[in-house]
Design a protein around this nucleic acid. Structure first.
Lengths: 107, 107
DNA sequence: TACGTATATAATTAAGTAATTATATGATTA
DNA sequence: TAATCATATAATTACTTAATTATATACGTA
């Protein structure tokens, strides 16, 4: 059971197209900021601020690998989010199209 | 499967303490505006505007009975909402405490 | 028909939020 | 050590949204 206030806080975070998309992407694979920027087609500071909100809300965690920061989902404690994601389309194709995947950057 | 944009629109509606509470209340029982105002402890215009948003978003529908307007949940087409509500505490007690229930008003 | 009650709408205010631009930090490499 | 790359932070701007106040509509009843 979740308190209404806590649920609302999380829903506010997820009720944003950019952030919801990012969470779906992270379901497929941990991603670094530059990869998310590439997929989401927006500026780096914009993504950076969204990631901070998601981190503050406990929805993602970061892992530093050299100069890169990888983000991964933290949803064990929020099963209702996993339930929610099941109703949304897979973002696998977008992750696969990454030009920097396994080559020049983030590796 | 739900489009991200549609999901985001609904999550914005539900990501508000007042509106989420109202939806939970409506799970227990159809309610008229004055009952919702009594439970939510806020002004009638405030509730009225929230109800309009919920109606515009297709989350509730209204039924006029004399001078009263009853609202009821419309969630058949949004199973992810029902899933979500399962994680939240029942509001049965609040509906039962209504002073106007079955007596003076709304009946 | 006049009045009271339930609800809606409009206008305003205040607060919150997303995106941009500019700058800073911190790690890596030449 | 200087330059570069990845990311974060700060400041600003524009936009959106919740709540309030005041007013309107619509139904029911004396």
């Amino acid at each position: 059971m979740v308190e209404i206030e806590n649920m609302v806080d999380t829903l506010k975070l997820v009720g944003d197209k950019c952030r919801l998309s990012i969470l779906l992407l992270l379901q497929e694979k941990d991603l670094c900021v530059c990869e998310i920027v590439e997929i989401m087609q927006t500026s780096q500071p914009n993504i950076s601020q969204h990631m901070r909100k998601l981190k503050d809300g406990g929805l993602v965690k970061e892992t530093k690998k050299g100069q890169w920061v990888y983000y991964s989902l933290v949803t064990q404690d929020k099963p209702f989010l996993t339930d929610l994601f099941k109703h949304l389309p897979s973002q696998k194709d977008k992750v696969q199209k990454l030009t920097c995947d396994g080559s020049s950057c983030c590796d």
